[in-house]
Structure formats: structure tokens, C-alpha cells
Amino acid sequence: MHGKREAKHHAPQSEENMEIILRTMSAYREHGPAQPSIELTRREFLKGAGILTGTLAVSSILSALAPSRVWALELKTLASAQGDTLLQMGKVLYPHKGLPDAVYALLAKDLDGAAGKDSKTAQMLGEGVAALDKAAGGSFVTASDAKKLEAVKSLQDTPFFNTVRGQCITSLYNNEMAFAYFGYPGPSWDKGGYILRGFNDLKWLPDPPAAASPAPYKA
């Protein structure tokens, strides 16, 4: 049952990716917590180089977390079209049915941040976006799903691909919206851990005997 991996794609974890991971870590060390979710602001206040916008579906579990269903995200260095292309590339790389674009927009936001810090990164992202458009026959964003996948695959192993893919890991899966979507509650200490909140509530298998798994203290 294991071993069929034809639909999966692998990329070597390049030095660029390590740099992203290490940069994320050192940013935490220097500046404390990153903003866990994008700011959902009124559009007219945004004055950046680019703006990404979207609307959370009424049914989305995330709509409860946001002050408004309409979200907008300001890009400081990248243009809107570039940000949108990177957002769409994130959806090809890490597809999750029902995960709102607001989460994928975090990828564009973080790449925009990297581009703002380093002109070489900005150039690489700009060229990568152009290459995606070209590979998709003009416009990556409006291309079919199959065409998008083909375009992304054609850039595999490039520094651009590795940078975007590596950034996905920390941008997409380390924020409160993703936690809510995937069902991961995050911190538990402030709620007293799980000792009284279901650490052993699994019922679809028999309970181990007490010799293997004694009762909790004072249970």
C-alpha cells in the first residue's frame, strides 16, 4: 500500500531553502513572533506597489476569524500581477481544496518581504514569474490547471522554484488560518494542556491495559 509516489514531486532542499528556513528562525529570534495572519484591511488605505484582494467564502471556517470576509494585502515591492502569479504557483505546489486564497496570499506577502530586502531576490522572482507566464503560453494565472502544473514542473530545480517552494512551508502552514483549516489547535499550555481535554479520548480502538498505560494521576 505504500510506495506509489507517481503523483508526488520532489525537489532537493537547496541552499536557498535552507536560507529561508534559517532566515525565518533568526527573524523569530530577533523580532519575536511573526504576524500569524494577514491583516484584513480596508482597501482604500493600501498604497503599495501591488495589492492582492479576495473574499472568504461564507462557508469557510476562517470567515469567523476575520473581521471582514473581504481581504486585501499590500505588496511593497512586487506588482499585483506578480503577487497573484506567486499566489497561484503556491496553489499548484501545495493544493488544498478549500484552503482560502487568503492563506496562499501569505506566500506572496513573505516573498514580497524577501524581495524588498534583497534586489537579487526581487529580480529572481520577477524573472521566475515571467518564465511561468511564458511556459503557460502567455498568462500563468489564467491558464488551465494542467497547463499550470506543466509550467511549474518546467521550472523545477531552478533557484526560483526552490525559493518559492521552500517559502511555502513556513508561509502556508504556520499561521492561525492554516491551523484552523487543518484542525491543529497550536498552543495548549494556556488551556492547561490536554490532561483534561482529550489526550486519551480515542474510542475507535480498544484501550490498552493499565499495565501498559496506567490511569492518569488522580484520575
Binding site: A7, K8, H9, H10, N17, Y94, P95, H96, R165
Partner: peptide
């Protein structure tokens, strides 16, 4: 699965 992407990973 470091480096992996696509639907089998997600």
C-alpha cells in the same frame, strides 16, 4: 518529506 510537493504530499 522535505522537498516534496504536490497532492500526494498535501
Amino acid at each position: 518529506d522535505p522537498g516534496a510537493w504536490g497532492p500526494d504530499f498535501t
